[in-house]
Structure formats: structure tokens, C-alpha cells
Computed example of a mutant assay.
Amino acid sequence: MTDLVYEQPLNEKIRSYLRLEYLNKQLSNNLNHDHQHRCFYPLFSLCELSERCDYRNEVLKDIERNLIQLGKWQALEHVDKQQIEQYIEALSLAREPLQKPERCGTQLKQDRFLSALRQRFGMPGACCNFDLPQLHYWLAKPWEERQQDYRHWIAHFEPLLNPINLLLQLTRSTAHFDNATAHAGFFQGDSAQALSLVRVKLDAAHGCYPTISGHKNRYAIHFVQFDQQRHSDRSIDFLLATCA
């Protein structure tokens, strides 16, 4: 078995960032492997999320806040100044494309091929060739051509997804994993500092998974036995990181 990492956001902003990061990973996976029509699900999910909410202003604020904090860290002793400078450079570069007023993905709404597919993809079993002959035609193209199309489509979201990846990297870097034990399958913690993310690393050989709940100053972790789908009554050793 192997160690699995579970994450629980403690505020809506990090919750949104994690969802976008998850979709970004699916996009990358689809770009490297031919998954046929399944490649459209994360793409259309991103379209819908970006239409519901304009993340640009929130991301720009977070970039500015982190640049100020990184600038303060530069003045401290015993810090990795090279890594800090790399983050400052990466965040500064990622900020530039977000200065444009247009929402990410807006131009894809004008793509007639994608619009026709998107209307159908929400319906069960509606991707048959008689429903979407244009999809049947596109899937018959060589993978290299389809890969180029897909790369063009996801490029519309990169100005948003790239800085979010950097911001989540910085969030995760605020805390290291420490040893912890859940007695009778339960662990509770609190923090005087506002937290944004709880991370649990657990050996899958335990045969259980954590369900995590909480808010910025307090959190609780219940471990559930997978086979029985019920709360574990065993003491479980795991690794815990609480990120600011």
C-alpha cells in the first residue's frame, strides 16, 4: 500500500482553489493521454465555474498579499532566499495575464463546436454519434490534431490556473507534516492562528480514510473503516499538517 494525502479547506476561497486545481490536473492528464470524449468534462466544468464567479480579483489580491509577505521573509536570516526569489518572480509573471479585464474562458463561448457539445454533455448518454455527429468526426481525427485543439482550448484558462497553483504551493509550504494519533478513530485540534487548510497523510494499509470538518480555528478528524463504512474505534497513527 502507499501513503495517501487528504486535504480539507477551511474557507470558501481555498475550497474554490482546490476545485480549480483538481480540474487543472485533469486537463493536464487529458492533454498527455487520449481519453476520447472524456476530455471535455473538466473543460466544461471550468467553463461553468468561471461563468459563475470571477476569480480574477481574488487571485490578484492573493498574489499581492503573498508578494508583500515574501518581501518581508527576504529580510529574515536562515531562510532560503533563492526559493523566495523564485516565488516572487513566478508570482509577478503570473500576475500580468490577469490584468486583462476579460474573464478566462469567455472566448470559448463563441466556439460553435464546443457550445453544441456542452449543451449535450449534461444529458445521460447524449454523446452518441447520432446526437453529436461533429464529435464523432472530431474523435476520428489523429490524436496529434486533437491534442493541438485541446491545448488551444485549455490555454484560455492558464492565466487563472497558473497563479492558483503557485498560491496553493505557498499555502501548503506554511506547515510540515507532524506525527499525530487519533484515539478511538478521532482527533481534534485548534489553533490561535487562522488556518486555511488541513492535510492528513495516511498509510492506506490502515484500511480507513479521514473525514475532516472545521473552521479557521478548530477542526476535527474522524477515521472511517472503508470496508464497513463506519467510524473506526482503533487508534490510528497519521501525519498532520495545518496550513495558514
Results as ranks from 00 to 15, higher is better:
Leu170His: 04
Met1Leu: 07
Leu98His: 00
Gln69His: 09
Arg118Ala: 05
Val59Pro: 05
Tyr219Ile: 02
Leu132Asn: 01
Gln119Gly: 11
Ser50Ala: 08
His35Ile: 10
Asn165Gln: 13
Tyr150Val: 02
Leu167Ala: 05
Leu160Ala: 02
Phe226Thr: 14
Thr211Cys: 11
Ile63Ser: 07
Pro133Ala: 07
Asn29Pro: 01
Phe113Met: 02
Ala241Arg: 09
Glu58Met: 12
Lys72Tyr: 00
Ile14Arg: 04
Asn24His: 11
Thr106Phe: 06
Leu139Asn: 00
Cys104Phe: 02
Ser196Gly: 06
Gln74Leu: 13
Thr242Asp: 03
Leu139Lys: 00
Asn162Asp: 02
Gln69Trp: 08
His37Cys: 10
Ala241Lys: 13
Arg56Lys: 15
Asp54Leu: 05
Trp73Pro: 00
Cys104Pro: 03
Gln74Met: 14
Leu239Ala: 12
His215Leu: 02
Lys72Phe: 01
Gly71Leu: 01
Arg38Gly: 07
Ile221Asn: 01
Leu170Cys: 14
Gln69Ser: 08
Leu161Ser: 01
Glu51Ser: 05
Tyr137Cys: 07
Ala175Glu: 15
Leu202Trp: 12
Gln119Glu: 13
Leu4Arg: 12
Arg172Lys: 15
Val5Gln: 12
Cys39Asn: 10
Lys216Tyr: 00
Thr242His: 06
Arg172Gly: 13
Leu117Tyr: 00
Lys141Ala: 12
Gln148Lys: 15
Leu240Arg: 00
Ser16Glu: 10
Gln83Pro: 06
Leu167Met: 04
Arg230Leu: 07
Leu202Phe: 14
Ala241Ser: 15
Ala192Ser: 01
Ser235Trp: 08
Cys39Glu: 14
Leu49Glu: 09
Lys61Gln: 14
Thr242Trp: 06
Arg230Cys: 06
Gln119Asn: 10
Trp153Leu: 06
Ile84Asn: 02
Leu239Val: 07
Leu27Ala: 05
Glu89Met: 09
Tyr219Gln: 04
Val200Gly: 08
Ser173Asn: 15
Phe40Gly: 00
Ser191Asp: 04
Gln228Asn: 07
Thr242Cys: 15
Val5Gly: 08
Cys39Gln: 15
Leu76His: 07
Trp138Phe: 14
Asn217Pro: 00
Glu58Thr: 14
Gly207Trp: 02
Phe40Cys: 03
Asp3Met: 09
Gln110Gly: 13
Leu4Ala: 13
Thr2Met: 04
Leu18Phe: 05
Leu18Cys: 06
Leu98Phe: 02
Leu161Met: 07
Leu98Thr: 03
Leu60Arg: 13
Leu93Gln: 10
Ile14Pro: 00
Leu67Gln: 09
Leu117Ser: 03
Phe113Asn: 00
Asn30Ile: 07
Asn66Ser: 03
Ser28Lys: 14
Gln228Lys: 15
Glu7Met: 11
Asn11Asp: 15
Leu10Met: 13
Leu239Trp: 09
Val198Ala: 09
Ile164Cys: 03
Ile236Cys: 07
Phe113Lys: 00
Tyr219Thr: 03
Arg172Leu: 10
Leu76Tyr: 05
Gln36Cys: 12
Leu4Phe: 03
